Simulated assay, not measured.
Amino acid sequence: MHLTPTASPLRASPAGPKAAAARIAVVIVNYRTAELTIQCLESLQPVLDECDYVSAYVVDNASGDDSPALIENAIRENDWRWARLVQAKRNGGFAYGNNVGMAAAEDDHETPFDAYWLLNSDTIVRPGALKALVDALDVECGVGIVGSRLEDPDGSAQISAFRFHTAGSELARGLNLGVWFRLFPSAEIAPAQDDARELADWVAGASMLIDRKVIDQVGLLDEDYFLYYEEVDYCLRARRLGWKTSYVSASRVVHLVGQSSNVTERSSAARRLPKYWFESRAKYFEKNYGRGARVLADVGWLAGHLLYRARRVLQNKHDQIPKRLVTDFILYNLSPLNRVH
């Protein structure tokens, strides 16, 4: 899939109620979450006038249930002429689904979109969220990717701005030791949320706006990631080509954590992680840093995690840890039978 290049940068209007003379395509990937997707679409209605033109594309990733019919009915009954359902040929994952949506938007319109807003199906958009994102894009200063302040339904902030994963940070993640992060703060991938913070290494893909010029230069999302790490990879690819990523606290989006995938759902912290989580992690390190760095990251995380577990036993404390985490990590990351190609 390819997006036709355009030389028109996204510009924020200095005055007026609208964020910009901008054309925005929203892409929402659905996989057996029809009710959440419809709720997300409902929340978009109040922000449609925040830009000159907004069109939403819901990509059903071959759900195999009644999702397409439910979403189509909701679009028709609510007269959401700005929304369209696209049925993907297969469940190719998050990156694949978003790429299908962006390609469909491209095919539908002769005039190119200025930016693409990737939204999880388990999100609820607050009024003003789109305007704040569009206003934050600044191609002259190199800001081409912006992410929202994700929050719980009660307004409590979730961590939405992150640092890149490195081999060194994996040891710190495994240890999960507060004093280590105080001594080496840059090792913290997910620092405490700071709404005054602007630039970030990467932002959560649950609500991420990408300027068209970034896509022209960087390309689409890497479909070899089924789920997880695809937005980290994309922001890193953009950074290496000179693009910056920014966290926009004024753009507020409720994120019903994990309900679109069940992997990060807080109530299921002990649930076994799926194979694709390990595969995505392995691909990220090997693709971006090489085989040696991947091995260092694997050994560092495993050593740190085993020390963490030993410490918790000595402290007589018990944490909710995904089932078979160490066994699966060794199987999918360290086994010679599982290599990233």
Results as ranks from 00 to 15, higher is better:
A238F: 10
A157V: 12
I210S: 14
V29T: 15
H255P: 00
P274D: 02
G92Q: 03
K317G: 02
L133Y: 05
Y284K: 01
P185C: 08
L314S: 12
V263P: 05
S13H: 12
A172I: 06
W117E: 03
Y53Q: 15
I75W: 10
V125E: 01
D211K: 11
N98L: 13
N78M: 08
V29Q: 12
Y228N: 12
R197Y: 00
Y53G: 06
K275M: 10
S246H: 11
R312C: 05
A303H: 09
M208T: 13
L241W: 03
R163Y: 11
E230W: 06
N176A: 14
L85T: 02
H255R: 04
T6L: 01
R197S: 03
Y53V: 12
F94Y: 14
S63M: 07
V139K: 10
K287V: 12
C51N: 09
L306T: 11
V214M: 09
G178F: 12
A190V: 04
N333P: 01
A167L: 03
D135L: 13
L221Y: 15
S160A: 09
L296V: 14
R182D: 14
A161D: 09
D66W: 01
V59Y: 11
R291E: 15
A204G: 12
R291M: 10
N333H: 11
Y284S: 00
P127H: 06
L314N: 08
T264L: 02
F113N: 07
L85K: 02
D65R: 06
A293Y: 03
N61S: 15
G219H: 07
Y332D: 00
S148K: 04
S260P: 00
R324N: 14
E223I: 11
C235L: 11
V218W: 13
D222S: 02
N73L: 08
R240I: 05
Y276H: 15
V232S: 13
L150W: 02
A136W: 01
